Amino acid sequence: MKRLTLWLCAALTFASAQAASFASVPLRPEGEALRREVLSALAALSASDFPVTLDESAQAAGSVLVLGGSVPFNPDESSRTLTVGGVRRTEFNPQGPVPLAEAVRAEIGSLLGLSEFTPQAARRKLSGADINGDGKVDLSDLALLMGNYGKTGGGLPGDLNRDGRVDESDIRLFTDEYRIP
């Protein structure tokens, strides 16, 4: 245990240069115009060492995004979200009160739970290192990780790489995000 503690202290002090992380956001934009806006919004959330990409795969089962709707929009409404057959569907008002790019960014920010629409906020939220979900990667997140260190099973807080165990690889991922205040 002493060896692990020393290793952890060194890792937190000198955040290691590991392979770049990334996040893939499950969304299903319909139509080329909307797809372009989604890609532009995700590019605005990306950093060179933490790209945020679009996962449109069938297994992603993300929210469906469409331009227009099945019923007329209130003129003051930029978008609306409903559930159809168990699938989340967001409809954007083509003549809405804000430009489509702004409405798409607002919706993606809301879907991801971002406090601000920046690469830093996206990295904090999507890296998994913000284990308690408070918008900060800090010692309380480390405490949750270490409380589960050595455990195995699905959905463990601190299993950042989602391999079913909390171990050194999760600590490495955590140190990529933690900054000493």
Rank of each mutant, 00 (worst) to 15 (best):
K2A: 15
L4Q: 12
C9D: 09
F14L: 14
A15N: 14
S16K: 09
S16Y: 06
Q18S: 14
S21W: 03
S21R: 11
F22A: 13
A23L: 06
V25M: 03
P29M: 04
E30I: 12
E30N: 09
E30S: 10
G31L: 07
G31W: 04
G31P: 03
A33G: 03
L34K: 03
S40G: 13
A41S: 13
S46W: 07
S48M: 06
S48Q: 13
P51Y: 08
T53I: 11
T53K: 15
D55S: 10
E56F: 06
E56A: 14
S57D: 14
A58H: 03
A60Q: 08
A60N: 10
A61H: 12
S63M: 14
V64G: 02
V64A: 09
L67A: 07
G69N: 07
G69S: 14
S70G: 12
N74V: 06
E77I: 06
S78Q: 12
S79F: 13
R80I: 09
R80C: 05
G86Y: 11
G86L: 11
V87I: 14
R88V: 11
T90V: 15
F92T: 01
F92E: 00
N93E: 05
P94Y: 07
Q95L: 14
Q95G: 10
G96M: 13
P97R: 08
P99V: 13
A103Y: 01
A103C: 06
V104A: 01
V104C: 04
I108E: 00
S110F: 10
S110R: 15
L111N: 04
L112Y: 09
G113T: 05
L114D: 04
L114Y: 06
S115V: 08
F117T: 05
T118C: 08
Q120D: 13
Q120A: 15
A121L: 02
A122S: 03
K125V: 05
K125E: 02
K125D: 00
S127K: 01
G128I: 02
G128C: 09
I131E: 02
D134H: 10
G135F: 02
D138N: 15
L142P: 01
R162C: 04
D163L: 00
G164T: 00
G164Y: 01
R165V: 00
V166T: 06
S169C: 01
S169I: 05
E177L: 09
E177K: 01
R179D: 05
I180K: 11
